[in-house]
Design a protein around this nucleic acid. Structure first.
Length: 875
RNA sequence: GGGAGCAUAGCUCAGCUGGUUAGAGCACAUGCCUUACAAGCAUGGGGUCACAGGUUCAAGUCCUGUUGUUCCCACCA
């Protein structure tokens, strides 16, 4: 028998157990056999990333599901990997380059710079993987992928070319979101709008040929006026009817620009006149197209005024803003300046204000792709859990603009397009071409841009399984089963995986999207580097154990809702782990058997705990199937702590320490069985400690992690015996409560007289009544003892108990107490009777509900009768 | 402007398809080193389930509205 330390120390256990699993090869998913596949692809964290609390939660939820499915007998594949994370990674490497060597990427050149990024990836790329292992992640590491590995890159290329061939990818000059700091275009999804205080400048543009007359336009970005090529009014606006068709003079630039009429202009807002800057505003761009307005770009890629900005050339956008306003004021052309709070688009990576800029970029034509992506969700082929996120998804899908996929970065999948220097045409190819496909010229230059990171992530569920090749893995494991991710990433990623799966695989990539919320700090704020309020999951795992951290992250919250992180909860969960540890120690210390087998005959308390365990197994399976992980975890917690430790272990002590060896062994067998089944139930949630204990117990099979997950078994349901046991437990609780009220010292062990109908239940349980209710001898009879009047009485629904503690009793107080209890229960009974007297209730409520209410009423009546009897005896 | 969530004990939150006298952790109070565990045991106090209507035999749970709060989407110069 193995002696275990008194306090569970996860540090001694976790890494050893993890190695044990790895050595066993149990994380590897096989194909075929008589098992079915179950697949989760891990949302790939950034290569340069550190595990934060959100990852830890994500990781825990996935690991619970995959371990559960593995134990159910599936070929369970959890496919891990990392994402190259274009902008994020490039920024990091550039920063290091600047601070350490004072260089920019341009100093190095593309090739050398990319070498540096790959070096960086080699160096830090496995940090997060190590951290995931610490959390207990049971991924198939042999299948780990990277979005820029050879296979994923081929998938990206295939998708780009085939979408191009289908006419779903095009290059066009359009307004895009431009980050002047990252110097690249961004997709709509990568822009975060933030409310910022600003101004609304009202500017006067003189009407041509009508001295002294102006149109007044309002703007939040006065510097863009340098690129104005028109003024628009609403065609229905009576105020400006005569101006349409005329021109005005653009101040500072002295450019004559037309006044046009367009529905886009809101009559109510501002003056009803809008300056048109087609090169720097998406709406103006559209209006410009309708009225043939020129698009004059006045900002360069760094956000500085370019050669089209006259004397302001070279100023950055904010400098130019001040200068333009100052000059206009000097000319008397600023009518007024209002304070104005408006939404400003910012870069989701660096936070700089995004500038809408006209630019030649690559786009995915979204509209044709959305139909199937919407259908599969509407038809339930892919379901969101919780369901409410479906609406988010559909709404987003239905209002999509084309997806800008080109980025002016170096780190990423370079766009497979070559431009011919001679004929000017494009060659789009699966293999790198040596000549122009149109004229055969060798003078071809590759498009320098790379693809949006999410372009490759969108293919993750099938590129990781071998696509575009027709691999065995792909055929076996695709479509995958569940995607686990936070709600913040539905638009970025989930939606794109769905339409990509539909388009390229003709099947939606997963049947369930399991959404979780954000992990916030104890004040409800997002954890962030800038706030410095992040809690390192590894520190928590180290201090309290990965199991405790996992339990913290999965209990007490429900799918899709944010949770607050409390260190105290880690402590509580560590205590729970320790509780289990000590319960296991207790079982082991009393173990003389070496085989896990239930005994042939069972005592009442055995049947009670087995029945409880059986119910638990049934419920936990139900909850897990419905993704109610927190509820399942809570039930297991309650079972272990309340039912198993606080009751059952205590109940077995009489047998274990008694003289009857056979009875002792019987108790051992049940203890071992119940503990082992409980470990199985808990294993997906707390993998380390459960495996460690399992290995120390007599067991069959190599590892707990590959045992069969318990299910409900009708032959182990003992509802009648369970109810009888609870009669006794109720008496124990009632006596304890009375003792506590009366401050009876625990050394005091009074004789216990019980008057009850079901005498057998109480007679057979004398041992544990003595032990748990701290009494002396127990006498069970049909009627109370003769001198019951002088004793302390304790009343339950099924028994009247009498304790000769008269010296401690104040008869008046006793009467008062009984009276109060009687009052209370009469109140309940009255309610109950009313309900049962209600003809509508009896006729309309389901039979079982009515029966339950009847039974409840009967029990109340019994309790009241007992109370009345006791009170009567007191006189 | 459109949409969604949340509002339950002092704090943080569970409460699944309506059905016991609404639960947990932490905190609090009292008594216990009872040979698994003081990271523990026993007992106890504490809640008009935001507000107002409605549906129902029955509402914390479903519907409508109100208030407060958080978030997502759109982006009107």
């Amino acid at each position: 028998m193995k002696e275990l330390p008194k306090i569970y120390d996860p540090r001694q256990v976790e890494s050893r157990i993890y190695d044990f699993w790895m050595d066993g090869g149990w994380f590897r998913a096989d194909r075929g056999g008589d098992k079915k596949p179950f697949t989760i692809v891990m949302p790939p964290p950034n290569v340069t990333g550190q595990l934060h609390m959100g990852h830890a939660m994500d990781c825990t939820l996935q690991d619970i599901l995959i371990r559960y499915k593995r134990m159910q007998g599936y070929n369970a594949l959890w496919l891990p990997g990392t994402d190259h994370a274009g902008i994020a990674t490039q920024i990091k490497v550039e920063e290091e380059l600047r601070t350490k060597e004072g260089l920019t990427r341009h100093d190095l050149g593309r090739e050398k710079f990319l070498e540096r990024v790959w070096d960086w990836k080699q160096k830090y790329g496995d940090t997060i993987v190590r951290q995931q292992r610490k959390m207990g992640a049971s991924c198939d590491w042999d299948r780990a992928r990277f979005t820029m590995d050879e296979g994923c890159s081929r998938a990206v290329r295939e998708v780009f070319v085939s979408l191009y061939e289908k006419g779903l990818i095009y290059k066009g000059s359009r307004i895009v979101n431009w980050c002047p700091h990252c110097v690249t275009a961004l997709s709509d999804a990568e822009v975060e709008y933030k409310e910022k205080p600003g101004n609304l400048w009202h500017l006067r543009y003189p009407i041509t040929g009508e001295p002294g007359r102006y149109v007044v336009v309002a703007t939040t970005r006065p510097e863009t006026m340098l690129g104005d090529t028109g003024v628009a009014v609403n065609p229905a606006d009576e105020r400006y009817k005569d101006l349409v068709g005329k021109t005005c003079m653009l101040p500072l630039m002295n450019r004559e620009i037309p006044i046009v009429a367009d529905e886009y202009v809101d009559l109510e807002f501002g003056t009803g006149c809008v300056k048109m800057t087609p090169a720097h505003d998406p709406n103006d761009f559209e209006v410009g197209l309708r009225h043939n307005l020129a698009a004059i770009r006045v900002l360069d890629d760094n956000g500085c005024v370019n050669e089209n900005g006259g004397k302001y050339q070279g100023m950055d956008r904010y400098e130019a803003r001040k200068a333009v306003v100052a000059d206009l004021e000097a000319l008397g052309l600023v009518e007024k300046i209002e304070d104005y709070v408006h939404n400003v688009g910012t870069c989701y990576r660096c936070g700089s204000d995004v500038e809408p800029i006209i630019s030649a970029q690559w786009f995915v034509k979204m509209e044709p792709l959305t139909h199937e992506a919407i259908r599969v969700v509407k038809d339930g082929e892919t379901k969101f859990v919780p369901e409410r996120f479906t609406k988010n998804y559909i709404n987003w899908m239905e209002n999509l603009h084309d997806w800008c996929i080109s980025r002016q970065l170096w780190w990423g999948h370079q766009i497979p397009v070559w431009y011919c220097d001679d004929c000017g045409k494009m060659t789009v190819a699966r293999e790198d071409p040596t000549e122009c496909a149109h004229c055969g010229s060798k003078n071809i230059t590759r498009d320098p841009d790379v693809l949006d990171t999410w372009f490759s992530s969108a293919l993750w569920p099938f590129s990781t399984l071998g696509w575009p090749d027709d691999t065995e893995d792909l055929r076996y494991f695709y479509p995958t089963d569940v995607l686990v991710t936070g709600y913040d990433i539905i638009t970025f990623w989930v939606s794109r995986m769905i339409f990509s799966g539909c388009e390229h695989m003709k099947k939606t990539p997963f049947h369930t999207v399991f959404i979780h919320g954000l992990v916030r700090d104890d004040k409800g704020r997002k954890m962030s580097k800038s706030l410095g309020n992040g809690i390192d999951p590894l520190e928590m795992a180290d201090k309290y154990g990965a199991d405790a951290l996992r339990y913290n992250l999965v209990t007490g919250n429900s799918p899709g809702n944010d949770m607050r992180f409390y260190v105290e909860k880690c402590e509580a969960m560590r205590n729970f782990a320790n509780k289990l540890w000590n319960a296991s120690r207790f079982v082991m210390m009393n173990l003389t058997i070496d085989k896990n087998e239930l005994p042939g005959t069972l005592e009442l308390e055995d049947k009670w705990i087995l029945s409880k365990l059986n119910d638990l197994a049934g419920e936990v399976n139900e909850n897990l199937e419905k993704y109610e992980l927190g509820i399942a975890a809570q039930k297991i917690y309650d079972f272990i702590w309340d039912s198993f430790c606080d009751w059952y272990i205590e109940l077995t002590k009489a047998r274990l320490t008694g003289d009857d060896a056979a009875a002792g062994e019987q108790a051992q067998r049940v203890l071992l069985y119940v503990l082992t089944e409980t470990l199985k139930l808990l294993h997906p949630f707390m993998p380390f400690i459960t495996e460690e204990i399992f290995q120390a117990l007599p067991h069959e099979g190599d590892a707990l992690m590959i045992q069969r997950y318990p299910v409900y078994r009708p032959e182990l349901a003992f509802p009648a015996e369970g109810a009888r046991m609870e009669k006794v437990m109720e008496v124990i609780s009632a006596i304890r409560s009375r003792r506590s009220e009366m401050n009876v010292p625990s050394q005091k062990r009074p004789h216990l007289f019980i008057a009850a109908e079901d005498r057998e239940a109480f007679e057979s349980g004398q041992g544990y009544l003595r032990r748990l209710a701290m009494t002396g001898d127990v006498t069970v009879a049909a009627e109370p003892p003769a001198d019951a009047e002088s004793m302390v009485s304790v009343v339950t629904r099924d028994a009247r108990c009498f304790l000769p503690l008269s010296e401690l009793v104040d008869l008046d107080k006793e009467r008062e107490r009984l009276g109060k209890e009687l009052e209370k229960n009469r109140g309940f009974l009255e309610g109950q009777r009313k309900k049962l007297a209600n003809e509508k209730f009896v006729s309309r409520a389901p039979e079982n509900v009515v029966a339950a209410e009847r039974e409840r009423a009967e029990k109340l009546e019994a309790l009241i009768a007992n109370l009345e009897e006791s009170l009567r005896r007191l006189g």
